[in-house]
Nucleic acid binder design. Sequence first.
DNA 1: TGGTAAATTGACGTTATCGTAAAGGTCAAG
DNA 2: CTTGACCTTTACGATAACGTCAATTTACCA
Lengths: 138, 138
Amino acid sequence: MRTDDKLYSITELAQEFDITTRTIRFYEDKQLLKPARRGNTRIYSGSDRIRLKLVLRGKRLGWPLDEIHEILQLYDQPGGEVQQLELMLSKISESRDALLVQREDIELALSEFDEIQIRCEQQLEILQKPKLHRSNQD
Amino acid sequence: MRTDDKLYSITELAQEFDITTRTIRFYEDKQLLKPARRGNTRIYSGSDRIRLKLVLRGKRLGWPLDEIHEILQLYDQPGGEVQQLELMLSKISESRDALLVQREDIELALSEFDEIQIRCEQQLEILQKPKLHRSNQD
DNA sequence: TGGTAAATTGACGTTATCGTAAAGGTCAAG
DNA sequence: CTTGACCTTTACGATAACGTCAATTTACCA
């Protein structure tokens, strides 16, 4: 449980994930991150880093930041109240549904790309071997 | 090949896909759609409708509109030039790579949601059957 | 032919997601 | 003590992706 006691500066994280420090501070503004402070300086723990990773994954999936904020709350320990837990469960199933739609969309796009690619390659073959065609017709 | 000679009005499409007509016109502004006109009124063909479907799928995948614009061009007939075809092939493989990353992200998110859900349900069981616990301890 | 429902354009507003610049604090090395 | 490398906050700007509203124009129907 105590394997991630490594700490990070804002520039370290920015470099690791190839984003700007401005972006990281912006996420903090939006309550997505809450790093500790030494004096005025932000210090990021291992779990802060994980949260940032989750944020970036959410971005890659096209979620807006406020949705990412909700999703992140799912990762925090559930309050323990029954209503809280049921709310969480319904949010999870909602998010899962959206993910399944996305996965379906991806499969469709991938197979369409396959078709387009095949057509492209066939066309290329025709264009790149014109002499074979001529010699066949001799 | 000639099975989609059905025509659509802008409101028909808006209702079918649950978007506003403003949105459809906006996409036209962005060159994503190019419907015919009867006088001043837009008329959408079957392939216009397919393009709109592709746009909306791209949106669900979180792509910005200008990327969607590029992807759409892949669906149009390739020019026939070798350079054109090779450019298309490289764009396809680029897009495919992005899709694979997204699919990976989705799988990760799904399995994490599964874990969270299981923890939630366990917690709920504990909270909803307190008397069984007590009677066990008698 | 009149009326009205629908379609169009244009201008401006809005929200999300940062970028950029200004103005300054901190801290270790020389 | 000063310099330079980071870090901070505040504020204003920029772009994408639409929404909203107003002013016209068009289409259709009795």
